[in-house]
């Protein structure tokens, strides 16, 4: 599971709170120059995993290493190399933006002389120029989120851990944030959690899917999509006898399985769900097989989006078995 260029390494990591196990036996790596998306429903264990990598909490069993440092014993040394944006931006409401960033920079060990340039860099990267002198409690949610990202970028982090960095942002701000992540990820390691699946396909090289604290899959977004190709589906509504409709559809080349239900609110109309091979033009063949004998009311091709992939994994493997 480990590789030479791995900056973040989790080896059989579990986290228990009393008798409740939040993360089970999690193993994966994030390499230098790689952006990994972390997908999972609420309560899946994403935040706990992020916290273990950031050193906020320690793993109950297993080992978390960041840049070679064991987070159980060397978390302070590793902290210099980690930029961490928690799910809730860690902001001191009574400070203004500039004082806050100056505090974080100094606390991360940035030399006093280098602080102004550092502040300028992250303020520009996160587009905070308009609010530099504003007190944090007066900031909008979007600015709070971006300030949370700005503090994570301070210093010289080799690793960026972002827990839902685009939550609460408008589309323009989301775009800007993605650009920051993409630019940083070119030379460093980034692990970020999100609910927006499109984001994962846009900027991640790999996606880790987690549910009930277990890793369900880790692969490239396109490979995950391929993994779901057998779930290409064509759904249709036909008025006709169910056995004959099923036989007619199964005789079409490329149709793997057919599921027929009578529609409860419309006697005589059937809802048909076909699992098909992933090739073009199949809809036309299906339509032809149906229309020369019965009335076709509706036909729809369902592409396997990452959302489907995610839901499919979560639905079919709820315990990660």
């Amino acid at each position: 599971m480990t590789s030479d260029s791995a900056v973040i390494t989790l080896e059989a990591v579990s986290k228990r709170y009393g008798s409740r196990t939040v993360v089970h036996d999690l193993s994966f790596t994030v390499d230098e120059g790689e952006i990994v998306g972390f997908l999972g429903p609420n309560g899946a264990g994403k935040t706990t995993t992020m916290r273990m990598i950031a050193g906020f909490t320690a793993a109950s069993t297993g080992r978390v290493r960041v840049a070679g440092y064991d987070m159980a014993t060397q978390n302070v040394e590793a902290a210099r190399l980690i930029g961490y944006q928690p799910e809730r931006p860690p902001l001191y409401d009574t400070l203004d933006v500039s004082a806050y960033l100056r505090f974080v920079a100094r606390a991360k060990g940035v030399r006093r002389a280098a602080v102004p340039a550092e502040l300028e860099r992250v303020i520009a990267a996160c587009h905070l120029e308009a609010v530099v002198r504003r007190e944090i409690f007066k900031l909008s949610k979007g600015y709070r989120q971006r300030l949370g990202l700005a503090q994570a970028l301070l210093g010289t982090p080799q690793v960026l851990l972002l827990d839902e960095p685009t939550a609460g942002l408008d589309p323009g701000q989301i775009q800007e944030t993605r650009e920051v992540i993409r630019a940083f990820g070119e030379h460093h390691a980034v692990l970020f959690s999100t609910h927006i699946l499109a984001e994962v396909t846009l900027i991640c090289r790999r996606v880790a899917i987690i549910n009930h604290g277990r890793l369900l899959a880790i692969d490239s977004p396109s490979a995950l999509r391929r993994a779901q190709e057998e779930t290409h589906r064509v759904s249709l509504q036909v008025s006709g006898p169910s056995t004959e409709v099923r036989d007619a559809l199964l005789s079409v080349k490329g149709v793997i399985a057919v599921d027929v239900h009578a529609m409860p609110d419309n006697a005589g109309l059937l809802a048909v769900d076909c699992r098909v091979e992933p090739r073009q033009g199949l809809e036309a063949a299906i339509a032809r097989a149906v229309t020369h004998r019965w009335d076709l009311h509706r036909l729809e091709r369902q592409e396997p989006t990452l959302e489907n992939v995610f839901l499919q994994y979560v639905k079919t493997r709820p315990d990660g078995a």
Binding site: N75, A79, Y92, Q151
Partner: peptide, 14 residues
């Protein structure tokens, strides 16, 4: 309660 402990306790400080 403000969530700033996540910043404070992940700084390079003992």
């Amino acid at each position: 309660s403000a969530g700033t402990a996540e910043l404070l306790l992940t700084l390079p400080l003992e």
